[in-house]
């Protein structure tokens, strides 16, 4: 018993610095976010736990205001576009690239490096790079489309409008009843795909190296084509990797901020404003507007969606807990 208590004491010494930093700069701010989402406050006149004079209780008012706000649902729609397009595109491309690179012998290292290196690039810088590519005067995209006579081409098919120009302002939209999908969101998604596909390539490559060569040899002997082998033998083996890659991409899509901020600033208007950008603006665009409470309400909603959606992933992370 005595020895066990001594063990505890030294355990706390090891964990104390981490606990202190975590409590002060994560736990308390997180709890603060949740509590202050029930109060009316601004950054300049914040809700403060120790000062009852700052407690302007709003009940569920902030949540009601957010959920009644058309701008919130616009941001939710844009985030939904991210949630669908980004994980699908990035997972598909990284799987395709990993498979192609796996098939070749010579040059595999070079190609893999090309796709993996952008992972180290910040989404801020990636946004800058793509804004240059999208530049209407000297961007590669306009020039390439111009070379085949398609620069500025327009398609006007009722609800579907496409314009092969103005990538960062108005490349078109698709009206689906009450909602309109703005294609300018794709211009913000593309840099993220460029930067983060490498993560999928690494994960799938690791999965591919663990497939036993006998399995593929057997299929080859039976005369299966390269495509059939990939579809029926290889890809089913990559299920585990695919789940992790998709989850990581979904988590990224849900909280995306940087690349939108740099490429479109959520614009034009609010056409590409995602939830994380709206949240930031509600609290921090003007320090004295008392909508910081609404911003924390959005943060709570966003986190709740994330925790519920990614709970299986969290469980799998916790399963690896050291015993």
């Amino acid at each position: 018993m005595h020895e066990r208590e001594a063990g505890w004491r030294s355990a706390y010494l090891f964990i104390l610095p981490a606990l202190l930093v975590f409590a002060l700069f994560y736990l308390w701010p997180a709890v603060n976010t949740i509590i202050s989402s029930f109060f009316t406050w601004s950054i300049l006149a914040p809700w403060q736990a120790h000062d009852p004079d700052t407690w302007r209780f709003a009940g569920l008012g902030n949540y009601a205001a957010v959920l009644a706000d058309g701008r919130f649902w616009n941001a939710a729609l844009n985030t939904l576009i991210w949630l669908v397009v980004f994980p699908l595109l990035a997972t598909f491309l990284s799987l395709l690239i990993a498979l192609l690179v796996w098939e070749i012998g010579r040059g595999a290292r070079f190609f893999r490096t090309v796709f993996v290196l952008p992972m180290t690039v910040s989404l801020t810088a990636a946004g800058v790079l793509w804004v240059l590519v999208f530049n209407p005067q000297f961007g590669v995209l306009s020039a390439a489309l111009g070379a085949i006579g398609l620069d500025g081409a327009q398609l006007d098919a009722g609800p579907l409008q496409v314009r092969l120009s103005d990538w960062l302002s108005n490349p078109g939209s698709l009206a689906l009843g009450p909602v309109t999908i703005e294609f300018v969101n794709l211009s913000a998604i593309l840099p993220a795909v460029w930067a983060l596909t490498g993560f999928g390539v690494i994960s799938f490559t690791a999965g591919l190296t663990s497939i036993s060569p006998e399995l593929i040899e057997a299929a080859t002997v039976e005369g299966a084509s390269r495509y059939r082998i990939a579809r029926d033998v290889v890809i089913p083996q990559l299920r585990g990797a695919m789940v992790i890659v998709a989850v990581v991409f979904v988590i990224y899509a849900l909280r995306t901020f940087d690349v939108v901020w740099v490429t479109t600033q959520g614009g034009p208007g609010t056409d590409s404003e995602v939830v994380a950008v709206l949240l930031w603006r509600k609290a921090l665009a003007f320090f004295d507007t008392p909508s910081a409470g609404q911003a924390t309400a959005i943060a709570v909603l966003l986190s709740a969606v994330m925790v519920v959606g990614a709970y299986p992933y969290l469980r799998s992370l916790l399963r690896d807990r050291p015993e």
Partner: peptide
């Protein structure tokens, strides 16, 4: 471990005050 999933927005706004 939860912090690996919960978005940074959950701490962001009260941090400035």
């Amino acid at each position: 471990i939860s912090t690996m999933i919960v978005p940074v927005q959950i701490i962001l706004i009260p941090l400035l005050p």
